[in-house]
Design a protein around this nucleic acid. Sequence first.
DNA 1: AGATGGTTGCCGTA
DNA 2: TACGGCAACCATCT
Length: 625
Amino acid sequence: MRTVHTNPLFPLQSATPRRLTSFLILHSQCSLAFTFSFPQFNAPNSDTFKHTEFLSLPLMRFSLTLSKTPFLAPIMASGSVSGSASLVWFRKGLRIHDNPALEYASKGSKSVYPVFVIDPHYMEPDPNAFSPGSTLAGLNRIRFLLESLVDLDLSLKKLGSRLLILKGEPSEVVIRCLKEWDIKKLCFEYDTEPYYQALDKKVKDYASTAGVEVFSPVSHTLFNPVDIIQKNGGRPAMSYQSFLKLAGQPSWASSPLSMSISSLPPIADVGSCEITEVPTVEELGYRDYEQDELMPFRGGESEALKRLRESISNKEWVANFEKPKGDPSAYAKPATTVLSPYLKFGCLSSRYFYQCLINVYKDVKKHTSPPVSLVGQLLWRDFFYTVAFGTPNFDRMKGNRICKQIPWNNDDELLAAWREARTGYPWIDAIMVQLRKWGWMHHLARHCVACFLTRGDLFVHWEKGRDVFERLLIDSDWAINNGNWMWLSCSSFFYQYNRIYSPVSFGKKYDPNGNYIRHFLPVLKDMPKQYIYEPWTAPLSVQTQAKCIIGRDYPKPWLVISLWSPSMVSHDSASKECKRKLGEAYALNQKLNGQVSEDDLKNLRRKLEENKEQESGSRRQKQKL
DNA sequence: AGATGGTTGCCGTA
DNA sequence: TACGGCAACCATCT
């Protein structure tokens, strides 16, 4: 196919019938009607489209007629096509406000291509996964992401642009776009996650050989993790308090953030790249999934800002916010802002949120402080981002210098019971149902189930629980999720392994009637309140009355607990055993100064087994006596 | 080396 | 509602 140079009024550096067609189709949602023909191919009027009103433009090598449409105005005004094209690569940062990458691209570019690449591994159905969704993400988060993309696309359209959706391995797709569209500036938000570090390296390497300018600002967090690590002599702070000291006030805190963009340069020719609209979940291949309760949080920047306004409009609430005092059983009206999923995808700028909170604090007499305040929550986020960025193998136990080496078990049956909400502890199971249905639970509820799976009861490896959260949470965030799993399993940051959440009394003190359990575990909805946290203690007559026979309609807890140790029959005995194991593991870590090898762990496992046999042996003897 | 404090445990007591 | 005991961890600061 021959390349044809276009009229300077038309923002195509080179045009072929195919490219022109894709450009016109691309803009057809502007209710554009047009005709054009390619006389040089000796096929006049062969590609004639329906037209309404004509504006004839004499072209150098072919003739083209276009209708007068709004989208033409910026194209006509943009003048010469010799100016540069920029590509904005959206990954997180799915917003217009406080978006330095978008802002930079919009200035001094003749055209801007806003791109989102759909990675099939992240989006397309995986029939082997344990829940509806892809290999990497549950359907709730995929839906949340798609909603965020639709919202971003709408906002971009209001600015005279749109979101270009492409499919494939992201670095390959972006590099192809850079070539195809002759991009001079590539702009995307800097990302500290290892996945993006590796991905971005590929793209940056290509850009530097091709002479493409790369602009990659830090705008996902309050601070640049690199700065904080440097301030601390190259190692991230391991405690929140020392992090606070290092971080201080963010440099941008008192200057206004760029909250809007008046207009964007147009998208030019998209060439042979296949562009689509934001797909629906059905278009991605999700068809026969059950949807008994719709997850109540909708994705997108507009929703994020609405939610933010609602949260900060109650100044007293903001000023008095104390995270540990929130009620984890409140589901109809959650005790927190539920802005975490919006922060995760960057629908909401953490810096804007921070400024809003500081402004509320200025208007009230007194307010709470980190770590428990709302600002404190944003700082926790930065704390985990910083330590995660500065710690190799942060998402693993092995080779992770901040992680205690502990002989966790890898029992898939125990894991499955926990994951599928059949531990027999209603408080734990209800939380796991909320995770699956909503993709969101209160922070303290997450603590309860994470503690139960790891150091509290089942002694399953924290990485297994991490994987389940990573998949199912709509706000799952690599740094924060891994950090919190290490925290809860007493592998790092927090070490007081005697403090174990009770799967019975913790929930009861917030919700004595068990409304939360009744809502997420309807099988127990008629269980009297005095039994609802421990239904196996209910007399059979009560179970019959409640139409819930324990062991038939809802599991007995000791069946699960005894899976990993036949002598374990209750939370009491399981948690005692966990404490004993952790005590031994801690002693080994201390003795070997953290340099615990796989053999050392194997030996410790053997030793713990021997002890257990001796103990249960002596217990049997005592019972006989 | 010793002191201090640590986002959010549980239970019993007053 | 607020405490002390439980048993005793760690990172950080002095």
